[in-house]
Amino acid sequence: MYDMRLTERVLDTETDKPKITAKGVQVYYGDTHAIKDVNVDIADKTVTAFIGPSGCGKSTFLRCLNRMNDTISIARVEGDIRIDGEDIYDKRVDPVQLRAKVGMVFQKPNPFPKSIYDNVAYGPRIHGLSRNKSDLDEIVENALRRAALWDEAKDRLSQPGTGLSGGQQQRLCIARAVATAPEILLMDEPCSALDPIATAQVEELIDELRQSYSVVIVTHSMQQAARVSQKTAFFHLGHLVEYGETGKIFTSPEDPRTESYISGRIG
């Protein structure tokens, strides 16, 4: 089902300036220390996968990158996270503006109970990305095409997004995120609610999105991480245990914990 194209990667990201840099990130939920001193550089136009057992903090860390943790009142984030060199936790940064730049796709497909068109058009509308109706039509069409949903959805744009199948809904959510023209796309286990065929479609899509965005994906499936990502970070109990080229992590991990996880002994 997966052609070899996905495994023949061009890995020349080391020389580029990183898109996101995180230094000494700590996250607390009340008294729980969820993320312990994470340092990571995420490159532009790359797919970076966060893997690790349940509760290891990979989703929590992902949500730090667009300050979604702000919506949880007991969460506290410390450390330094920069996008293009700008501290996103700076007092002057408005999280709303940040989230327009850093799009997010959630674990469970969560389309708005509105039409397919309105779902995709919502972001551009609130950010004023279109001057007129035909502009907006174009943005919606492009976003749906990028999410490989155009052919299935073009005749039913006015129908509710919640009427689509699970896989289509998730692609709709991706289209919705893409329509806002973000620079970074965060995906929190985007395929966990999908069947294998829908998963394959979304994975293909992720590989294409890499052309334009820096994609960070949290996944439970090591196979998925191996298939779609160029860089992989392994989280365990709130620590970033190992971070490097996906090929290297899966073939010759340095840390014994990574090796145990990958070979299925922990997790």
Binding site: M68, T71, K101, G103, F112, Y122, G123, A177
Partner: peptide, 10 residues
Amino acid sequence: SIRDAALGLG
């Protein structure tokens, strides 16, 4: 999830 979706879009 509806709130997350909206907030996630900025």
